[in-house]
Design a protein around this nucleic acid. Structure first.
Length: 110
DNA sequence: AAGGTGACTAACA
DNA sequence: ATGTTAGCCACCT
């Protein structure tokens, strides 16, 4: 059985291109409604293991909360814009427009 | 090996 | 209504 990390990775990989989602959503889809922290931590530590679109995960305000110098907001903003997502100068994305909340086959148990 | 931290969120007081 | 506390579990020191 895959651990939370793997589920998170799977969910993240299921995010459609050009969309963004929140830590809480990813955590929920992964089976941890309050595991937002883990999502952040996991992405931070395992972002280099796979080609994870970590830039599509932001906090529930649509704001890029990365404080890590290795994953600068500017980089995330650039990646999102590169995917067609509009990011304001304050590193905020319009969740009402680009937010993805798992429309279809997003949940995969085990 | 054990403890602390973390790119968060939601519920309580 | 706002402020504070609790919880999630893997990775790092």
């Amino acid at each position: 059985m895959p651990i939370f990390k793997d589920k998170v990775i799977r969910v993240v990989q299921q995010i459609p291109k050009g969309c963004v989602t929140t830590y809480g959503t990813v955590a929920t889809l992964a089976g941890l409604p309050r595991g937002g922290r883990l999502v952040g931590g996991i992405l931070h530590f395992t972002s280099d293991e796979l080609d994870l679109p970590w830039q599509r995960i932001i906090n529930r305000f649509g704001y890029i909360s990365t404080k890590c110098l290795e994953h600068p907001k500017a980089l995330q903003k650039a990646l999102l814009e590169m995917e067609g997502v509009e990011v304001s100068d304050d590193f905020v994305v319009d969740l009402n427009k680009y937010g993805w909340w798992g429309d279809e086959k997003d949940v995969d148990y085990c």
